[in-house]
């Protein structure tokens, strides 16, 4: 379904899109997951810049995206984020891209690819989970109470972050006494938006979207990932037609950071495997 790009809103600006690499190469779009921004790909992308046009972006509310573009209703479900992806692709006139989505962005990629299959040639899903909360016959790894704890945990880090963010938001980052406090300068996010994003992420159920994907896909499953356990990766593999599953040695939820070489190699192998 073609989308109309509103001329007054540039998705490239809104989503802080950065394009590097080989301009004539096939496009490789990296989408960050919940909790960080496009920087989390910085250890992975160098491997691809020689051959690919590498596209990075921040979800609205994260990193250096346009915070004013945040509309609670639009981003009340992953569909709004998927729409953003499609708008970026449309604005850059990209087709047959390889979409690499981490964590929640894996599912955002699934939704976008199901909507406009022509835009996508392959999907790489890093630590995907179509549903985080357990249900009868399905294990997502969390209970509803767990998610409430997460939200509370986010709130706990809210005050500290606000203090850190204050000079940035206030527009006077030159004040040295404040600048020195900018300790957690990466993965900035508007706390209120981050909270909503967490809700959307962890309360979503996108299992029904998996079978709609038609292009080849790679699932990168970490060992010992508390966010997306192995059963979940299995589930995605089973329900995603034409998918392959690679179990990484890397542990935790962010192989792109903890094991960038292994991650990049797996992606490269997948892309080379024509």
């Amino acid at each position: 379904m073609p989308r109309v790009v509103s001329p007054s809103v540039s998705a490239v600006i809104r989503n802080n899109v950065t394009v590097t690499g080989r301009d004539t190469g096939p496009a490789l779009v990296f989408a960050h997951g919940f909790g960080c921004d496009q920087h989390m790909w910085r250890l992975v992308t160098p491997r691809f810049t020689d051959d690919y046009k590498v596209v990075l972006f921040d979800h609205v509310g994260c990193g250096r995206s346009d915070l004013s573009a945040y509309r609670p209703q639009r981003y009340a479900s992953l569909q709004g984020y998927a729409d953003d992806v499609l708008e970026i692709l449309a604005e850059l006139d990209l087709w047959d891209v390889v979409f690499v989505g981490h964590s929640v962005s894996a599912m955002i990629g699934v939704i976008a690819a199901a909507a406009e299959p022509d835009r996508f040639s392959r999907l790489v899903l890093v630590g995907p989970s179509p549903r985080y909360i357990d249900e009868d016959g399905y294990r997502g790894g969390f209970t509803r109470a767990d998610i409430d704890e997460l939200l509370e945990s986010l709130d706990s880090n809210y005050l500290g972050w606000s203090a850190a963010m204050a000079p940035v938001i206030m527009g006077n980052p030159d004040r040295p006494e404040l600048g020195t406090e900018l300790t957690n300068s990466f993965c900035q996010a508007d706390p209120a938006i981050a909270r909503r994003f967490a809700q959307v992420t962890f309360l979503s159920d996108n299992r029904a979207d998996l079978p709609k994907v038609t292009m080849p896909s790679l699932i990168l499953q970490c060992s010992d990932d508390v966010i997306a356990p192995y059963e979940v990766g299995e589930y995605v593999h089973r329900n995603l037609p034409g998918s392959s599953l690679v179990l990484l040695k890397a542990t935790g939820h962010c192989p792109n950071l903890s094991a960038p070489d292994e991650t990049a190699a797996a992606i490269d192998a997948f892309l080379s495997n024509d």
Partner: peptide, 18 residues
């Protein structure tokens, strides 16, 4: 569990990056 998720999604990436 909340902190666990936070650790995985925030703390870990931050430590890796900065």
């Amino acid at each position: 569990i909340g902190s666990r998720i936070f650790h995985e999604t925030h703390l870990g990436p931050l430590l890796h990056m900065q």
